[in-house]
Amino acid sequence: MEHRAYKQALFAVRNEESALDIVQDAMIKLAEKYGDNPASEYPMLFQRILQNTIRDFYRRQKVRNTWTTLFSSLQTSENEDGDPLENISSTNNSTPGTPDDELEQSRTIAAIEFALTKLPARQREAFLLRYWEELDTAETAKAMGCSEGSVKTHCSRATQSLAATLKAQGVELP
C-alpha cells in the first residue's frame, strides 16, 4: 500500500523527501484517527487522507513559494553553475549492464511516470485512484470529494492525455 502511495505522492509533488513525508503523515493520521475502523475501510480512508495531505502540501508550498520568490529576487542563485540534470530525480533503476528488455522497460516506466506528472492534478488523482488503486467510481468520487460524473470525465481525459504524451515520446506499451 505504502509503495503505491509513495509513487502517487511523488507524481504529485515531484520531490522524494516530500513524498515520503506525505505518505508517513497519511499513515500516521490513518492509524491515529481510524485505527479502530474495520480493515475493509482502510484503503478508501487512506486514499482520502493521502489526497488531503497532498493538497495540504500544495497549500504550504504556495505560501513558501511566495516568500522564496520574494527573497530570491534579492539574491543571486548559488546553483547557477550546477548541472541541472543533477536535480532531476531518477525514477528508473537501470544500471550499466542491464539487459536490453529491462532497459526498455525502465524507459517505458520513466515515460509513463513523466506523462503522469504532466497531467493536471485532478486527472492524475482520478486515474490513479480508479485504475491503480482499483476503487470504483463511487469510491473514487468520495475520496476526491467530487461527483461520479467528474470522476468519469477526469479519467477519460487522463487516459487521452497519457496516450497522446506517450505517443509523442514514441513509447509503445507492451
Binding site: R4, Y6, K7
Partner: peptide
C-alpha cells in the same frame, strides 16, 4: 490513437514499485 488501456499503464506502474530503491523501501 487517443485510446489506451489503463491496465497496461497500471501494469507498468506496478513494475516500477517493484523496482523501488532500497533506501526508499
Amino acid at each position: 490513437s487517443r485510446q489506451i488501456d489503463p491496465k497496461r499503464i497500471v501494469s507498468m506502474l506496478n513494475k516500477s514499485t517493484e523496482h523501488m530503491d532500497a533506501s526508499t523501501r
